[in-house]
Design a protein around this nucleic acid. Structure first.
Length: 588
RNA sequence: GCAUCCGUAGCUCAACUGGAUAGAGCUUCUGACUUCGGAUCAGAAGGUUACAGGUUCAAAUCCUGUCGGAUGCACCA
């Protein structure tokens, strides 16, 4: 058991002794927000006292009298309105470092009840370049998947690519009448994008083109061999692009089941929902309306217009008989339940789709009322990336910014920096450093803000390589590795017992202990930015320790103890960054 | 119009979901044994958390209203 869990268990016993009927689930021990108060605290007693109309300080006094934590704490103080503050003994801190040092879990514990979690993220579109917007879903989804996995859950990642839909009508016309084979060979995505734009512009000028596109789409949907072959080719070419980008980002998927995979299942979904009375015909389309189960304000199928609540239905079949994305998403959810029986399905998409997912989840619950408690569904949404002008991030000419180009630019800027800072490293190594630093910087810039806020894209900030950035963390790691290279000490020669006395040693060690609490918060709220903050603070603690506590110049137990701290810090940095999908370097 | 989200230091963002004196980075200024890697560290400056009420031991966080912004709202995904 980790230290704070021990404290929590003892606290619960003490509370139970004072208030035998009190609910203990909410009684928690957390790290203190300010170390002046102590190392850990509980504010649960104030909430308990409030419920029971008791004097909170009196309750704190009574609980404290029953609390047995002398083994780990120097003392426990009552403070403020009824906080209990715990201050750890250095010996307890040292002891808590031992198991991780010997190869045990790094300050976290595996989930008591492992869950099966499906994570749906990235989802780029066929025949289009992946753009800067895809970094958010991809980085977030990948990081969350890694955290869930580390905590012992069974994770299934699924890339729900956009490989079906009305855009293929236009693309097919373009392919058949305007294809430049040489350009396709050179730059398949660029050529497909050009075709789409050309035909799209044509169709706006000429209704006949639009009609032709519709017919090509109908032929594709009917299984016309030629159109099917072209469509498959477009997917193939797009997948090459996706794979290249994912390889650069170090992202992998267990499955890539795109929209088209669910085509054979769509009719049955519509039929079943209609038969069950959940969906009905309206204005030629088949729709799901409100069932009146929720108050109008919370009902995703109602909207207020002109002072009255009016239907805001979800369409599951268009007037022309084709299904749309709500249908596909319902079929997808049904498939996931049938095949994987997950405890949870997480969708990582931008915030504009909130209404869609509220409707989707509501339909799902009406369709499968018995599953609501067995399979949790969550929409993990994020804000937009903005340009310096506060508008959606675009190039000067108004184009979307391509993700591949962003990564290349990041690497080339990182290469300049490493060349300037470390000219003695060979060029090949500098290229490798630039790759790791550049892609790490892009990912970290995306993961460190709260996912729900829009953020402003800035090369300067992303690659400033100082402050709260990936390179700062990577640098901290490289400095530690440098110490071990110089010392010639391996981890196997590190001592079994050691002591920590200096304030900067202790605060670094105490911060290491809270790694797992952070990971649990990341998983509970789907927020990797908590991990970013944690790692940035860890690197800060290390930097202060590094300034004030010479490692190799010290001797005996002090030297060995400091080496232990270095080793554990480097492991947590590496582990933490790897959860964010960011690599580390021995030298940079 | 309605819904969702948001408004925090000059700028870019945090704040463990109701906890203690609201924290970082950038910028500006001052300092750190010719350095166990200075891509570092220490210090200073910068705030009525948009505004006005309310709830309570405690509010950036919850409630009400006002102002401002982003996004979404029937056959794109």
């Amino acid at each position: 058991m980790r230290l704070h869990q021990e404290l929590e268990a003892r606290l619960r016993s003490a509370v139970a002794a004072v208030l035998p009927d009190a609910p203990l689930a909410g009684v928690a021990v957390r790290p203190c927000p300010d170390t002046r108060f102590g190392d850990y605290q509980t504010n649960s007693l104030m909430a308990l006292a409030k419920e029971r109309k008791m004097n909170p300080r009196q309750l704190a006094t009574d609980v404290l009298a029953k609390l047995e934590v002398a083994e780990w704490c120097e003392g426990v103080e009552i403070a403020g309105a009824g906080f209990l503050n715990f201050r750890l003994k250095p010996s307890a801190i040292c002891h808590a470092l031992l198991d991780p040092l010997r190869g045990g879990p790094l300050f976290f514990s595996l989930a008591a009840v492992p869950r099966t979690v499906v994570v749906d993220f990235s989802s780029p579109n066929v025949a289009k370049p992946m753009h800067i917007g895809h970094i958010r879903s991809t980085a977030l989804g990948d990081a969350l998947s890694r955290v869930f996995r580390l905590l012992g859950h069974r994770v299934i990642t699924d890339n729900h690519i956009g490989d079906w839909g009305t855009q293929f009508g236009l693309l097919l016309i373009g392919w058949k009448s305007h294809l430049d084979s040489a350009a396709l060979e050179r730059d398949p995505i660029g050529e497909m994008e050009r075709l789409y734009k050309k035909v799209n512009a044509d169709s706006e000028a000429d209704p006949q083109v639009r009609e032709n596109a519709r017919q090509e789409l109908v032929k594709l949907q009917a299984g016309d061999p030629e159109n099917l072959a072209i469509w498959r080719r477009m997917i193939e070419l797009s997948q090459v692009q996706f794979d290249t980008i994912y390889h650069r980002l170090g992202v992998t998927f267990d499955h890539t089941l795109g929209e088209s995979f669910y085509n054979p299942r769509l009719k049955a979904v519509v039929q079943e929902l209609t038969e069950k009375g959940i969906a009905q015909e309206s204005r030629g389309a088949i729709c799901v309306f409100s069932d009146g189960a929720l108050p109008p304000k919370e009902d995703p199928f109602l909207i207020q217009k002109d002072g009255e609540w009016q239907p805001n239905p979800a369409l599951i079949q268009k007037g022309d008989g084709a299904a749309n994305y709500a249908t596909t998403d319902l079929a997808t959810l049904a498939y996931r339940w049938e095949v994987w029986k997950p405890d949870e399905v997480i969708y990582v998409t931008d915030g504009r789709q909130q209404l869609h997912f509220r409707q989707l989840f509501a339909i799902w619950r009406r369709w499968h009322p018995g599953l609501a408690d067995r399979m949790r569904v969550a929409h993990v949404w994020f804000g937009s990336i903005l340009g310096e002008d506060g508008k959606p991030f675009k190039t000067r000419s108004g184009e979307t910014v391509k993700l591949g180009e962003v990564l290349t630019e990041a690497e080339s800027r990182a290469f300049e920096v490493v060349t300037q800072k470390s000219p003695e490293i060979s060029e090949a190594e500098r290229r490798e450093v630039a790759r790791v630093v550049g892609t790490g910087a892009v990912k970290y810039a995306d993961l460190s803000p709260n996912r729900q806020s829009d953020y402003v894209f800035s090369w300067e900030k992303m690659l400033s390589l100082q402050g709260n950035t990936a390179p700062y963390l990577q640098y901290a790691f490289a400095r530690i590795r440098s110490i071990f290279r110089k010392s010639g000490v391996g981890i196997h020669s590190l001592p079994a017992t050691f002591t920590l006395t200096h304030a900067d040693e202790l605060s670094l060690a105490k911060h290491l202990l809270t790694f797992g609490i952070t990971l649990e918060a990341v998983a509970a709220e789907y927020r990797p930015n908590y991990l970013c903050s944690y790692l940035y603070e860890l690197a800060g603690h290390f930097a202060r320790f590094y300034e004030s506590c010479p490692v190799l110049k010290s001797e005996g137990v002090e030297r060995e103890s400091r080496l232990v701290l270095c080793e554990l810090t480097s492991r947590v940095l590496k582990q933490g960054l790897s959860l964010l999908g960011i690599e580390v370097l021995e030298q940079m």
